[in-house]
Nucleic acid binder design. Structure first.
Lengths: 254, 254
DNA sequence: CAGTGGTCTAGACCACGTG
DNA sequence: ACGTGGTCTAGACCACTGC
């Protein structure tokens, strides 16, 4: 506990001065840094509010407000009586935030994953741009086919920055039974925290048609997702193609 | 100001008793009732925190927490130095929460709306179920075609409970220049607050193809939306069909 | 300058989980 | 019985808006 971070109390900021940051925002930033550094791992508890208040030399209420915001953003999870925990993809709750395809009738689907491909290569220009890399930087490309109740439903084309995902192989993926993001967390220390998606309807190409066992030209839902870790750093581009005859993409507008 | 609502202070609730509601949740419920009753209209300011605290006989902090939650749900809008306002669809910000189709290149699209149909009829079973009406209850059905830059892009099939939308006519719709939800607010006192959507890819039918000027079978994004007012009461079913060649549906996973 | 929401504090007490 | 987060209060002061 050697760190006594510098929190600026804005005592002298001129009224109407440009930069002004509330104390709790600074605490929030410090907590974010801790999460990013891996000081507290996914699933673990962070120190109690009182402990953090003591460490940062602020009141419990200020720490509370910082944690409130991180909890609202789903980075932390409060559990009364137990503590505050780092969110992890090893929980159904988190998982369904990212898995939006849902069966039309709420039956429990048996799911299967088949890895089609996993190779390292130089990033194409569009992928590089989305991942904020340089064209030609190494990336990992994974292609997989997900089935529900034995029928192929999702075709994923996934791109990851090579530097953060050394050692990602077909074998590792094939032996994996949890969601991909859970594996990224456990094996590579990469926590996905947020994602942006662009959705369109497209006609099935020949390869897509063959893999999904549908005619060429069949309408498919196409979802391009960019996922981010702490600090809004893009860490994955995922192009998903969904068959939506018996499934739909659910969304809530608030 | 005759109302001194009964807030239960839970002083005597046995430890571990079933029902227990924090004070601020009760205040929140009271504010929600006020919004629902139309005590404060969209765009108007609600009373100040101190005033509400006095009215409800609680501290400012408790009122604040109630308002915080309503603001987080986008029912209220805080503006420092000015007050707290009832959210309204007459603002670009609110509008884009519900309009998710976005041009691929961020150009400013000229938009046009053509009302195809507007008639009152007996509710089909599926619509009735979604609107929580009885089959055969009166509903209003509106069909319209939205164009961007002169090219038809969105085909909407809209269903509204007849009881709440008396006097909705083609003429009224044709003369309208604002978003539909803004019109619902001003003309019928119905505020849409939240919506659920189910999205799929479908092949264009003959009618759809003709109106959207595309070949039959062309892939289209199909969005079924159910919109809710205060208290989670469904007030609209909207089946939208989108052309996604130059537009996409944007979404954020948090 | 007055009034609004925003921040920060300190302390009391409640509800929950675990030992 | 203890420690955790959750609620509620009261008061001081700050930042923004508009008269």
């Amino acid at each position: 506990m050697s760190d006594q971070p510098t929190v600026e109390r804005n005592a002298d900021t001129a009224p109407g001065s440009a930069a002004f940051s509330p104390l709790y925002q600074q605490i929030k930033a410090l907590l974010l840094q801790g999460l990013d550094r891996g000081e507290w791992k996914p699933g673990e508890a962070i120190p109690s509010e009182l402990e953090l208040a003591a460490r940062f030399q602020v009141s419990q209420g200020t720490v509370r407000k910082a944690i409130d915001e991180l909890a609202a953003e789903n980075l932390l999870l409060r559990r009364q009586g137990k503590g505050t925990f780092v969110a992890t993809h090893h929980e159904a709750k988190v998982r369904f935030r990212f898995l939006r395809l849902t069966p039309d009738d709420a039956h429990s689907a048996v799911t299967g994953s088949r890895i089609l491909d996993c190779r390292r290569m130089r990033a194409p220009a569009d992928i590089a741009a989305l991942l904020e890399l340089r064209t030609g930087d190494t990336v990992v490309n994974v292609r997989r086919l997900l089935s529900f109740d034995e029928s192929p439903t999702i075709l994923d084309d996934i791109w990851l920055p090579g530097a953060s995902f050394k050692g990602l192989t077909v074998e590792l993926l094939a032996g994996n039974r949890s969601p991909l993001y859970a594996l990224f967390e456990s094996e590579f220390g990469v926590s996905m925290v947020r994602a942006d998606e662009k959705i369109r309807a497209v006609a099935a190409s020949e390869t897509q048609a063959e893999l999904l066992e549908i005619p060429v030209g069949h309408p498919l839902l196409h979802v391009e997702r960019v996922s981010f870790t702490y600090g809004d750093r893009p860490m994955e581009v995922r192009r998903g193609t969904y068959l939506t005859e018996r499934f739909h993409y659910r969304n809530s507008l608030n």
